[in-house]
Amino acid sequence: MFVSAPGRRLSRERDPAALAALAALAERTRPVSASRTRLLPVVPALADLLPDGALRRGSTLTVGGPGDDGALSMALALVAAASASGSWCALVGHPGLGAVAASDLGVDLGRLALLPRPGPAWAEATAAVLEGVDLVVLCPPFPPRRDMARRLVARARERRAVLVVVPGRAGWPEPADLQLRIDDATWVGTDGGEGHLRRRRMTVTATGRRSAARPTRRALWLPDADGTASTAGHAGTRG
């Protein structure tokens, strides 16, 4: 399906015109063939929640909960490991990213493009960044129409990117490959006014399609005392 380096399989005696055509084809499909791997890494604490233990290229995830609490942190935590290992990320539609938190979660700010206020062109802008960025976190500024959402999901699949949607109040009308639901987010550390916010415990339930249809539930610290994601013990007293 993918064209590998053109020189490798062709002997030198081949027709130069055919070679050139193949080279041109390789060039056209390069963005695809450059994405050699099928999976993008995630931090260990999140691997358990994902069917492949990693993010599958071309897939769409939604992150949300009954409140908005923790959804952006979770989305950033999801892209952190890929970002740190050289993948490009974009955050579309969020006007107030806390860059320090993103950096603490492990996101490489040098490979993170921010589209804070894309306005009415948000879907078009998302489609545009999906062309060349491995992971896109989308916070739709307006309720997306179903056809819009469907087109973006298709674009992510086609470009072998990962689309992480934080629906927030705008919602997301299209089923995702994996839904991450955040419940019972609880901050620890204020100690009756004497301490400060230290870490947040949350329960995350992943529900997928097909093989991943059975929900997986994990207790996490996000952020933990180091500002990253880690597994929480069931007793909730660990760490």
């Binding site: 860059a99 320090v100 938190a101 603490d104 916010l197 500002g227």
Partner: peptide
């Protein structure tokens, strides 16, 4: 930890 959202 730092807040994930800083209101513009």
């Amino acid at each position: 930890p730092a807040p994930a959202v800083v209101h513009p």
